[in-house]
Simulated assay, not measured.
Amino acid sequence: MGRSGSWKQALRYLNQKKYLYILLIPCVVYFFIFNYIPMYGVIMAFKDFNFAKGILGSPWVGLDNFRYMFGLSDFYQVFWNSFYLGILRLVFGFPFPILLALFLNEMRSMIFQRVSQTIIYLPHFISWVVIGGILVNFLSPTWGVVNIFLGKFGFDPIFFLADTDYFRPIVILSSIWKESGWGSIIYLAAIAGINSELYEAASIDGAGRLKKLWYITLPGIKSTIVVLFLLRLGQIMGNGFEQIFVLQNPMNLSVSEVFETYAYRVGILGGRFSFGTTVGLFTSVIGLIFLLIGNAIAKLFKEEGIW
C-alpha cells in the first residue's frame, strides 16, 4: 500500500512538471549520444588498437600502454606542465568571473551595464585560432605593437612566445580575457536570485555597499562558487588543446607541452591511437581524484558539494 502510494505520488509529480521534463529531453539525448555512448572507447587504452580490426577486435594488451606512458622520458615534464598550468588557471582564472560579476552587479546605469556585458561576452565567441594570430602579431619582436611600444622607451625587442618565462602568463591572461565574461553569467544569475529584501533591510540598518557585498551577495552565491570550483578542480589537468596548440612552438615546447598536445603529437601523429586514449583516461582519473578530495573537504566545511 505504501509503495503503491509512493508511485502514485511520483506519477502525480511528473504529471505536474511534465513540460519541464519535456524541455530536458534534448539535453539528456545530447549527453547520452555524445558523452555516454563514446565511453566504451575507453577500452582502447587497454588494447593495441588496429583500424582494420576495430576496437573490439583489436588485441588486448592490459596495462602495457600505461607502462609505455610512464616509461617515456618526457612524460613527467608533460605532467608537471599540465598540472602547473592547471593550478595557475585555478588560482588566477577562477576568481576573475566572480569579481567581474560583482563589479557588473554594482553598476547603477543599466545601459552601461548591458553594453559592458555585451563587450566582455564577445571574446568567448572568437576562435582560439584567431586570438592566436592576434597574439602572434601583437607580440612579434619585429612588427608587434608591444615591442614597438617598448622600443620607444629604449628596451630591446622581446620574443615573448619563444621565451619560456612569458609563455604561461600569456596563456593565463589570454584565457582570462576570452572566458571571464562568459563565466560571469552564472554568477550574475545567482546574484539575481538573492532576495532583494535582504538588501533593503541592510540599507535600513545603515550598511554600505561593501558590507552588503560581503555579508549578503557573497554568502548568497557561495554555494554556486563551491560547485563551480569543484567542477573546475575536476578539470585540473585539462588545459584545452586549441589555445596551447596555436601558441606552441619549438622554442617554448619545454613549458607548453601539455597532455592534450602530447596525446596529439605522440598518439595521433605517431599513429598510437591507444596511447592517446591512455593519456585521456589517465588525466580523467587524476581529475576524478581531485574532485573527490575537493568534495570531501567541502563536506567537512558543511557545504553541499556536488553530491
Rank of each mutant, 00 (worst) to 15 (best):
residue 58 S to M: 12
residue 60 W to A: 02
residue 62 G to L: 01
residue 63 L to Y: 03
residue 65 N to Y: 01
residue 65 N to D: 00
residue 66 F to L: 10
residue 67 R to H: 14
residue 68 Y to K: 06
residue 70 F to K: 01
residue 72 L to P: 00
residue 73 S to E: 01
residue 73 S to G: 00
residue 73 S to D: 07
residue 74 D to M: 11
residue 74 D to S: 08
residue 75 F to L: 13
residue 79 F to T: 10
residue 80 W to L: 15
residue 80 W to P: 08
residue 81 N to C: 10
residue 82 S to N: 11
residue 83 F to Q: 05
residue 85 L to H: 09
residue 86 G to F: 08
residue 87 I to F: 09
residue 88 L to N: 01
residue 90 L to N: 01
residue 93 G to M: 06
residue 94 F to Y: 14
residue 96 F to D: 10
residue 100 L to R: 15
residue 101 A to F: 08
residue 101 A to E: 00
residue 102 L to Y: 06
residue 103 F to V: 11
residue 103 F to A: 14
residue 104 L to C: 06
residue 106 E to T: 11
residue 109 S to W: 09
residue 109 S to D: 07
residue 112 F to Q: 00
residue 112 F to V: 07
residue 112 F to A: 11
residue 112 F to T: 07
residue 113 Q to L: 02
residue 115 V to E: 03
residue 116 S to K: 05
residue 116 S to F: 12
residue 116 S to V: 01
residue 120 I to H: 09
residue 124 H to K: 15
residue 126 I to A: 01
residue 128 W to M: 04
residue 128 W to N: 06
residue 129 V to A: 01
residue 130 V to I: 09
residue 130 V to M: 07
residue 130 V to G: 09
residue 132 G to E: 12
residue 133 G to I: 06
residue 133 G to R: 15
residue 135 L to M: 15
residue 136 V to D: 06
residue 136 V to I: 15
residue 137 N to V: 03
residue 138 F to E: 00
residue 143 W to C: 01
residue 144 G to W: 02
residue 145 V to T: 02
residue 146 V to D: 02
residue 146 V to I: 13
residue 148 I to Q: 15
residue 150 L to D: 09
residue 150 L to P: 02
residue 152 K to E: 06
residue 154 G to Q: 10
residue 155 F to G: 01
residue 155 F to S: 13
residue 156 D to I: 06
residue 158 I to F: 07
residue 160 F to G: 00
residue 161 L to I: 10
residue 161 L to W: 12
residue 163 D to I: 04
residue 164 T to H: 11
residue 165 D to A: 12
residue 166 Y to G: 12
residue 169 P to M: 04
residue 170 I to D: 03
